[in-house]
Design a protein around this nucleic acid. Structure first.
Lengths: 174, 174
DNA sequence: CCGCAAGTAGAGTGAATATTCTACCGGAGA
DNA sequence: TCTCCGGTAGAATATTCACTCTACTTGCGG
């Protein structure tokens, strides 16, 4: 049941990440989830709900990969956080941020907007507290967004720039 | 003729900017362009071509609004450039960067990828030369991308952060 | 006045596809 | 052994929608 739920969510996430939110038909999504139509619609009542399910799942995976297990309270430098974000991009998001992609594909859907805001809010918040920095979360957000969007365009150069900027901003905030 | 072309491109751009690349049907696009089906398909042979046409048009408008007329060789500080980008977001792109949105909506289309790359490349190049700065274009790209993506989430705070980062980076590059 | 280049209006067509429905199956508990 | 519960497989259904086609109009150069 919950097992089934995460299996479905994982498959959906992968399908949307690989092919975007428009292209895959519900039949494609069914195949990616590895279940029958009936079951798919039992856990997500519409195609839109499938998108939301995939995004919730990705949010959890992103936080775990970038910041470690929620109970882990160790310090993590900004530089390391940025490294991990670049690692995530490399492995999982070569097409860019999935939340922005979702909002872009239906900009009028308020539910997606909410999910995007929650995701970004939580990410910059976590980055800030884990690094024990005084830098404003707004500065952090700009750097993280900059890295996330620039990475597909310039890879390592983007990572280096993000780290340099973070370093400068941190030095200036003391 | 060329007049017709820009009229169509402008209408398409507006439609896609307002409602995303998935939602509007070709009939909607026809209405937005203010022409007949036949004429629309004469200037853009498929819906995908309409997307490309709209993006080309937006690229020109963006450059003109952010950097002024191409022949204008005056200096423009980074801070002013960022102000103008925020102004553009406010007036035209409350849903985020249209180029990223296009790629997000069909991530497998190489033509869109090319248009995105050309756009970003040209923007960071222009920002760099107009400001007569030694800062790397990669740093610039990260800041501009950061502002562009963070602006819909935090508006003025994002602008302030982007300016602060640009200032620090510029000071460090001399 | 002719004829053509370039437009409008709008209906038709055929394919794709989101969602629902029918029929069936396996296994765990009463 | 019986019987639901929760699953599979996959066929209808109804609608949307990209694209095309037909028929008509208008302005203009020769």
């Amino acid at each position: 049941m919950n097992n089934m739920m995460t299996k479905i969510a994982g498959g959906l996430e992968q399908a949307f990440a690989a092919r975007g939110f428009t292209e895959p038909s519900v039949e494609d999504l069914r195949d990616a989830a590895g279940v029958s139509m009936r079951t798919l619609y039992k856990y997500a009542q519409s195609r839109d709900a499938m998108i939301r399910l995939a995004l919730e799942h990705r949010h959890q995976r992103y936080l775990a990969q970038v910041f470690g297990h929620p109970t882990d309270e160790s310090v993590q430098s900004l530089s390391e956080t940025l490294d991990r974000i670049a690692g995530w991009m490399q492995a999982e998001a070569s097409h860019g941020c999935l939340f922005h992609a979702a909002v872009a594909s239906s900009p009028t859907d308020p539910a997606l907007r909410k999910l995007l805001e929650k995701h970004k809010e939580e990410v910059s918040q976590l980055a800030s507290t884990k690094a024990r920095t005084d830098m404003s979360t707004s500065d952090l957000l700009v750097i993280i967004e900059g890295l996330t969007q620039a990475w597909p365009l310039s890879k390592d150069a983007a990572l280096a720039s993000a780290k340099r900027l973070a370093c400068l901003a941190e030095a200036a905030s003391n």
